Amino acid sequence: MATGGRRGAAAAPLLVAVAALLLGAAGHLYPGEVCPGMDIRNNLTRLHELENCSVIEGHLQILLMFKTRPEDFRDLSFPKLIMITDYLLLFRVYGLESLKDLFPNLTVIRGSRLFFNYALVIFEMVHLKELGLYNLMNITRGSVRIEKNNELCYLATIDWSRILDSVEDNYIVLNKDDNEECGDICPGTAKGKTNCPATVINGQFVERCWTHSHCQKVCPTICKSHGCTAEGLCCHSECLGNCSQPDDPTKCVACRNFYLDGRCVETCPPPYYHFQDWRCVNFSFCQDLHHKCKNSRRQGCHQYVIHNNKCIPECPSGYTMNSSNLLCTPCLGPCPKVCHLLEGEKTIDSVTSAQELRGCTVINGSLIINIRGGNNLAAELEANLGLIEEISGYLKIRRSYALVSLSFFRKLRLIRGETLEIGNYSFYALDNQNLRQLWDWSKHNLTITQGKLFFHYNPKLCLSEIHKMEEVSGTKGRQERNDIALKTNGDQASCENELLKFSYIRTSFDKI
């Protein structure tokens, strides 16, 4: 039985969820670079991206490699990797027998973001014989899940209580170790020597080791999670996991709180800001991140802002960003909400898709409305799209047979046209069989910064309504002859009103 693990408890099935942008060198404390989270699957090609990484700022997932063999891993080693800020997950990587050479110096898994409450997941690794993470000293947050690894031993010899604050939620089941077939031998045991430290858990006094050649490092209890030197002297209180010299914040392997210019500090002093819960960055760093993602459509890219001495992905609820200094300031009234469309555009074809934009005031991208039916549609669209004030790209209304009016965009005031449909149009209306009105132009103002209007096959939309939009939106004169079809717009509506004058002759039985 794995020490510190839980057996036999019912657990939810383990679901495996399925960018080499360097964020800056980590400095003297770390020998390499800070790398983003990685999802490495199918083959070993991307694994080489770990070569210079000291910190993975995010998670590391290595999974679904069915053609790899043990010899493929023999020359692979990433000794610079010290810390993973989120979680480490391995799933069905064939041929991998140990992690001792792959990650010989991995010391800390912070667990800032977890995989279903777990910071370390080893699942269905069919050839893994031992973990071998002999320098792993601290899992700051989260638990361990090690399950269905039929060859995995050296679990009962690990004292997880020396690595985690609590072992109650560890789930370590259905491994070879369960069948008591392992016969784990710690260093020196074969020669009758006791080389590794022994600890007591559940009444068992057991030597602690990761492999037959690597003991588990056990520091004096007084050192807590700070770690200790090879001689057993406690590291500085700002260290986490390990250090090369005692009581020196510049000799830590990793930091308990924050890293700044080669030393570990309790908090980031001005003019620095907390970033990702582990390091200090200056304003320029946060500003660069903001600008890199301002026009990016890459998933996970955030326009970072500053709030409460932190550089964070977005302002919290009730705050909006001051564009001059990136500071989050309290909103006066309802907060603006910028919604970034991942692929640059979004099609609204149902109430469900409209709900995804609920509360958005600025759309960074283009909207395509293609709704053919739905219950209580006008009210639903207004509830979900009615706060949109600005669209950076274009607005396209296409084959939306259920629409009679666009009044559900009740606050839309600006279409920038930074991206144009077919390279020309910022407003595009095609084949809307029941569209009769755009907006009530006596109450609604709309500016279209650039781009043209396109109207074709809107049989109940009168040309007068379209011409009014040209005047109000500032697009009059931009359109070419064929942009607004004269014969297919309003051709099934009563669009022309003329005053009919009647004269009559009164007659009676005795007068003409």
Rank of each mutant, 00 (worst) to 15 (best):
H28W: 10
Y30K: 02
P31M: 03
G32V: 13
E33S: 14
E33D: 14
E33P: 13
E33W: 09
V34H: 10
C35L: 00
M38S: 02
D39R: 14
R41W: 09
N42T: 12
N42C: 08
N43D: 06
N43Q: 09
N43A: 05
L44H: 10
L44R: 07
T45A: 04
T45Q: 10
T45H: 07
R46P: 05
H48M: 15
H48A: 06
L50K: 00
E51V: 09
C53G: 00
H59T: 04
Q61L: 07
L63P: 00
L64W: 01
P70E: 05
P70R: 10
D72L: 02
D72T: 12
F73R: 06
D75L: 09
L76M: 05
F78T: 01
I82A: 08
M83I: 14
D86H: 15
D86L: 00
Y87A: 01
L89R: 02
Y94P: 13
Y94V: 10
Y94N: 08
Y94F: 07
S98K: 03
L99W: 01
L99A: 03
L102W: 09
F103L: 03
N105Q: 08
T107W: 05
T107R: 02
T107P: 00
V108I: 15
I109R: 00
R113I: 10
F116Q: 07
Y118P: 00
Y118M: 12
A119S: 08
A119H: 00
V121K: 00
V121Q: 02
I122D: 00
E124L: 02
L128M: 08
K129Y: 08
K129S: 09
E130W: 12
Y134M: 13
N135W: 02
N135S: 09
N135K: 14
N135F: 02
L136A: 01
M137G: 11
M137K: 10
T140D: 11
T140Y: 06
R141L: 06
R141T: 04
G142F: 01
S143R: 06
I146M: 08
E147L: 11
E147T: 12
K148Q: 10
N150G: 13
L152S: 03
L152Y: 01
L152W: 00
Y154N: 06
L155N: 14
L155E: 09
L155F: 08
L155V: 14
L155R: 05
T157Q: 10
I158W: 05
I158N: 06
D159C: 04
W160Y: 10
S161K: 05
I163P: 00
L164S: 10
L164P: 01
D165T: 08
D165A: 06
V167M: 00
N170W: 03
N170L: 08
N170Y: 04
V173P: 09
V173C: 15
N175Q: 11
N175V: 03
D178Q: 12
N179P: 08
E180L: 09
C182D: 15
G183C: 09
G183S: 11
I185D: 07
C186R: 03
P187N: 15
G188E: 04
A190S: 09
K191F: 14
G192S: 13
C196G: 14
P197K: 09
P197T: 12
P197F: 07
A198P: 09
T199R: 10
V200S: 12
V200F: 14
V200I: 10
Q204V: 06
E207T: 14
E207W: 14
R208P: 14
C209D: 03
C209G: 06
W210P: 02
W210S: 09
H214G: 15
H214F: 12
C215Y: 11
Q216I: 04
Q216T: 13
Q216R: 12
V218K: 14
P220L: 05
P220Q: 06
C223P: 02
S225C: 07
S225R: 10
H226Y: 15
H226E: 05
H226I: 08
C228K: 03
C228D: 05
C228L: 02
C228F: 03
C234L: 01
E238I: 01
E238M: 09
E238V: 02
C239S: 00
L240K: 04
G241R: 07
G241D: 02
S244I: 14
Q245R: 13
D247P: 01
D248S: 05
D248T: 02
T250F: 07
C252M: 03
V253H: 11
C255N: 01
C255G: 00
C255F: 00
N257I: 01
N257R: 11
F258L: 06
Y259S: 03
D261V: 01
D261W: 00
D261A: 02
C264M: 01
C264G: 00
P269Y: 00
F275I: 03
F275G: 01
W278H: 10
N282Q: 07
F283L: 07
S284T: 09
S284K: 12
L289F: 10
H290P: 03
H290F: 14
K294A: 14
N295S: 10
S296Q: 15
R297E: 06
R297L: 06
R298A: 07
G300W: 04
G300I: 12
H302W: 11
Q303W: 06
Y304G: 03
V305G: 08
V305H: 03
I306K: 01
I306R: 02
H307Y: 09
N309M: 08
C315L: 01
G318E: 05
G318Q: 15
T320Y: 11
T320R: 09
M321R: 11
N322Q: 11
S323F: 11
L327G: 02
C328D: 00
P330I: 05
L332V: 05
P334T: 11
P334L: 11
C335G: 05
P336C: 01
P336R: 07
